[in-house]
Design a protein around this nucleic acid. Structure first.
Length: 415
DNA sequence: TCTGGGGTCCTAGGACCC
DNA sequence: TCTGGGGTCCTAGGACCC
């Protein structure tokens, strides 16, 4: 089998770059990328965290995920702009379209990252490095933002490579280069080594990717179970998952959750938020042609403890009303009145919602499905908020919540 | 004016069965 | 008289990614 050639394309400070490019096109005088700036949520509704930051903001040690409060303390003059997911979606799609000119085999890893299988593509485009530079320059010229491209023989090393030169870089990281380029890096820079694992590794005296690579894998497996073996393999550049084109039916579950602008302390409001989440989930389920057997509720208390409760039901459902009935039941089984800052609903164990084949129909459910169908049609035609439940009027709670815009590509954390 | 949202996978422990 | 063990399914919680 010939050696694979894999590219990883990573948009530099994606949300911020896209925001900056858009603003320049619309007459902005300054380029957000050249000043301390960030894309962040709204503190007033308790969504106040940094989603993306500029390179000058990085110099102030601003981190993604930290509170705007903390970020402003570090850099009071920082410009913070709100997110615009529709724009990011358009930019992401434009990127994908350009990349598809170079290879048909592309895995969209997230809104701002793609893997490309460039194996045997040299007969069309010449050597990998040459085409990588061409792609990078075209994106800059035609789309107005920079990317970093990593090149290797597997997805993991390609991804690690793209991290090495930012912004606007092309870097190779072949197996024979890992000792020099990857092993000196701090162990937390390795894909799949997060805060919890970093802490454990440090306690074993492992601080670099190289040190991890040279640790006895049995030791790691003892302490960290399968995850220990996984990161040991990654540290040694061992990974061989294929670039897989994203397929809708591979989705395992659908979840929507929301942090409420105020703490909730009564069942009536909690139920309203749950219903608003189920409305969104139901719509997404039916749009994909799925029904779900597993239903789960999650909540976060005002002191940030997370509690979840789930159940597998014998019949799969796709009706908003029935899902809500189950969610209500689950919620009342696990909530003891604590103040809530966040509520979530998830469904899983998906199957096709072709109930005529499953013969799970009953008369009542058929009526509800017709109702859902009508609601879906009206919302599709006139917009999501064209039809809302009257109970939400003047409630201060959004009738449809959770979520992001349609078809937003958020894939998985796994290669 | 303090801490988002949407995913996937893994593990421990309990229930249950043979 | 003095407490099997293996397998599977289920749930809650936690890890990781972007």
């Amino acid at each position: 089998m010939p050696k694979q050639v894999i590219f990883h394309i990573d948009v530099n400070s994606a949300y911020l770059s896209w925001e900056a490019a858009y603003r320049l096109q619309h007459g902005a005088k300054i380029d957000l990328r050249n000043v301390p700036s960030a894309v962040g949520g709204d503190s007033a509704t308790r969504h106040g965290i940094i989603l993306a930051k500029s390179i000058p903001a990085k110099k102030f040690k601003i981190k993604t995920g930290e509170t705007l409060f903390s970020a402003r303390q570090k850099c009071p003059t920082m410009i913070i702009v709100p997110p615009n997911y529709e724009l990011y979606m358009k930019c992401s799609n434009a990127l994908l379209k350009l990349l598809k000119e170079y290879s048909p085999k592309i895995q969209r890893f997230s809104v701002d990252e793609c893997f490309m299988d460039m194996t045997k593509m040299d007969k069309f485009w010449g050597p990998p490095l040459k085409v990588a530079y061409e792609i990078k320059e075209r994106i800059k010229k035609e789309l107005g933002f920079t990317v970093s491209i990593g090149i290797s023989t597997c997805k993991l090393l390609a991804k690690m490579a793209s991290e090495l030169k930012k912004p606007d870089g092309v870097t190779t990281l072949f197996l024979e280069e890992i000792e020099e380029k990857m092993w000196p890096l701090p162990v937390e820079d390795l894909f799949m080594v997060g805060p919890a694992t970093t802490k454990k590794l440090h306690s074993y005296g492992i601080h670099t990717i190289g040190a991890l690579a040279q640790t006895d894998p049995r030791f790691l497996q003892n302490r960290l179970k399968s995850h220990g073996l996984l990161i040991w393999n990654y540290a040694n550049g061992r990974e061989n998952s294929p670039v897989r084109e994203n397929v809708a039916f591979e989705i395992k579950g659908i979840g929507n959750s929301t942090t409420i602008a105020f703490d909730i302390d009564n069942l009536k409001e909690a139920k309203m938020v749950l219903l608003s989440l189920v409305e969104t989930i139901g719509g997404r389920l039916r749009k994909g042609g799925w029904a779900a057997r597993l239903i789960a509720v999650t909540f976060k208390t005002s002191d940030f403890r997370v509690i979840s409760h789930q159940r597998k039901f014998s019949t799969p459902v796709d009706c908003t009303n029935i899902i809500y009935q189950r969610v209500e039941e689950l919620f009342s089984e696990c909530w003891n009145g604590e103040h809530l800052r966040h509520l979530g609903v998830k469904v899983g164990e998906l199957c096709t919602n072709d109930f005529t084949q499953l013969s799970l129909f009953n008369w009542n459910q058929e009526r509800l499905r017709k109702l859902d169908k009508t609601v879906d049609r009206i919302r599709k035609k006139y917009g999501a908020k064209a039809l809302i439940r009257s109970s939400f009027l003047h409630s201060g709670i959004s009738p449809l919540s959770g979520g992001i815009i349609e078809d937003y590509p958020l894939m998985s954390s796994i290669l």
